[in-house]
Every structure is written in C-alpha cells, then in structure tokens.
Write a protein that binds this DNA or RNA. Sequence first.
DNA 1: CCCATGAGGGCTCTTACACT
DNA 2: AGTGTAAGAGCCCTCATGGG
Length: 295
Amino acid sequence: MLATLVDEPFHRPGWVYEEKYDGYRILAYKEGREVTLLSRNAKDRTETFSEIARAIATLPERTLLLDGEAVAFDRKLVSRFQLLQQGDRPSVYAVFDCLYRNGRDFRNEPLPVRRDELEEAIGDTHHLIPSRRLDADGKKAYREARKKGWEGIVAKDASSPYCEGRSTKWLKVKVHQEEEFVVGGYTPPAGSRTHFGALLLGAYRGSELHYVGKVGTGFPQKTLASLYRKFQPLAQKDSPFVFPPREKGATWLAPRLVAQISFHEWTDDRKLRQPVFLGLRDDKKPRECVLPEGK
DNA sequence: CCCATGAGGGCTCTTACACT
DNA sequence: AGTGTAAGAGCCCTCATGGG
C-alpha cells in the first residue's frame, strides 16, 4: 500500500498521522524461524538488514507479515537515508502495519485493529519499533515534523483496509523539497557576518533567468569564504536576471554556478519559502535549472 | 557531549508614509 | 483614491558558542 503525495498539510476527522521515515520500504515475512525482508521492487534485503531479520526471527509468532521502513537514526533521532547507506549505524525497522499474524489475515480490518496486532507482535526490542504516532490534529502533526526535521508525515484514513498499490487512503506530506538553482549574485554581509549575506537565486524559462529568491542560511564559516573566492572572477556589472530584484549593494554574477537548495515550498509570488543552502553542484549545468511547470 | 541561546538570514503581514 | 516603498514584528532555519 503506497501513499499519494499531496502538497499541503491538512486535517480530516477519522484520520491519523504518523512520522514519515527516510529509509527503505520493507515487507517482512516470518514463517517459523525463517525471515525474509523484501524491498518495494521485491528484491531480497534480508542480508542488507540482517540485524532486523534476526530481531524478527526471535519473535514468538509462528507466522507474521509486517510492513514498515528500515531506517538509521542520527544523534537527534532523525532518520536519514545517507546513514542507512553508509551502514555504520544500527538499522531499525519502523513498523506501521501488520497484514498477517499467526495465520490470520488482517488486510480487510481497519487500521486500529492492524495497529494493535503489530504492537503486540513486535514487543520491545532495539531493532523493532512501532511507527511514531503524531498529534491527532493533522496540521499540528505537520508542524511537529517540520520542527523536528523529519522527512514529513503520512496521513491515514483509520477506517480503510490495507489496499495493495497506490492509494488515496494514505497521503504523504513532505516537509521540504530539494532543487538546484543558478547563483546570479549576492548581497553584502551585515553585522559580524563575513564575505556575503545571501545568494540571489534563479532558474531558467527558455533563455530568461528568473529570480526565485534569496538563500542566506546553511553556510558554515569556511563555506562562506570558499564560495566568496569562487564568486570573484564571475562578478559583472549587469544583473543576469530578466527582472532583477531590488537589492541594495548586490553584486551580480555571471550565471555559471549551481547551488543545491532545500526549501519548504513555493510562495504565491514564485519565491522559495525557507530556503537552505546545501552545497554547490558541478554535475548540473546552469541551463538545466529550469522553472517547474506553472511557476 | 548535549543543550540552550544569540546572531544572521528568509518570507509574510501589517503599518506608516510618499508619490502619482 | 490608488499605488508603491520602507520598516518592523512574527515565525522559522542554521551555525557558533558557552555552560552544565
């Protein structure tokens, strides 16, 4: 059962909200002592997540079919895909559904029944946790996810059975998006800030570079310095943007550098909301940074 | 080592003010 | 009257720092 992506957080009576984890979607089958972990495209991941497989093998259930996400947490208990790939942290199975247990099929039961089954089944071990339930108000749940830095939330119609494939009974809302943008200039630093204040970002529509907002956070001290060095040979007199923003003291740059930016959403007037600088990318050409459809 | 705090920065909304 | 500009408050995010 796969969730459908929606843009906006919402609240609906009769729905519940859970943390959305950044990891591998995994179905776990248990028959006696035999455990098999399968990915979404049905690849066998039992070896990849052997700690999880062993934890499930020790459960007393004769048969079990669980659905969840294999994850690795950072020190702040935020699940991160990169940590899972590095493999130097313990993997944890965040379980959010139970389809079979001891020979009984629960797929047509509503979510609360399946939830009870899974909580009884997985008990209390390091490698198996029930997925985190959030505030009963969907919008508060979303705010919590955003504050904690989680990937997003999954909203579920509690009355729905477990349906194979993409469903609108499960909806996911992501906390942030990531995109690459062209650096077209920078603003002067204020106070104790060194080198520059914010980067002026743009994206192409056809041959026109359109301004999409500024990013002024996400720079450690040495990144400020190294970016500033890269900027100097690109400085030019005229704005590269078709509609330059009014910025006092801005330095314009030839549109050669591409920055990877995390942001929450597009604003109504086509700017980035809460943009954060993640790094420069040299594997993407400025011309490949195009405005999304409708923006 | 973890956590709270302050500084710098972004966008939004509101308010005050200037200009046409 | 209507439009546009500027400044400040509010909320959120990141990084650096200092104390426990």
